[in-house]
Structure formats: C-alpha cells, structure tokens
Amino acid sequence: MTSVTLYALSGMVVVAVCVYGLVSYPHLIRKILAINVMGSGIFLVFLSFSRRVPGENPDPVPHAMVLTGIVVAVCATAFALALARRVHEVTRSSYLPEEQDPPEEAG
C-alpha cells in the first residue's frame, strides 16, 4: 500500500466517520463539527493526490485547492456556529425542531 493510497483511504475513513456523526447526533454543534471534520477528510484525500507520480515534484495544485478549501471551510464553520448560537438564543434549543421530539411520537 503506497502512502498515496493510505492517505486517500484514511481521508475516506474520516469522511465516513463524519457522515455517521452528522447522521446520528442531533446536537447542532456536533453536526457542525462533523461537517468541519468531513471537510478535513476530503482535504486529506486531495493532498494524497498531490504526489501521484512517485519521484516527481509534488503537484502544487491540490495545495492551492486545499488552502482555498480551508478558507471556505473556516468561513462556513464560523457562519454555522454563529447561526447555531442565534438558533439557540431564539428557540432555547440546540436542536433542529424535528429532532427534539423522539421520532416515534411524531410518527
């Protein structure tokens, strides 16, 4: 297993874990975190591709993309956190409305 594959696979594992987190934890902060970390997992996948051809200089493009991606992710996370706070202020709850009631009751 090359390092490239290792990186890529571990990135995918991170993504998968985060998807699980996003799905199963109703708390907003956890969800936001899951998404944030999921972004990092994808960046990991990206970076793994920068050394596609062994022996050559690493491809700079994924770096540029990851940098841009990080900026975007930071913005998004910041905005999401701010929004979550507002939601909490207004609704006195850190959950989305449908997640507050146990699903079986709603059904």
């Binding site: 998807v19 799905v23 709603a106």
Partner: peptide, 18 residues
C-alpha cells in the same frame, strides 16, 4: 403530511442521500 415531515429527520434524510 406525515410522510413529508418524516423525510425531514436527519437520519432519514442522510440515509436517503447515501
């Protein structure tokens, strides 16, 4: 209406997505 609101649960929604 019931079916529609149940689509809104993250579990359901994410599973559908996956």
């Amino acid at each position: 209406t019931w079916l529609e609101s149940s689509l809104r649960y993250w579990v359901v929604a994410s599973l559908v997505f996956l």
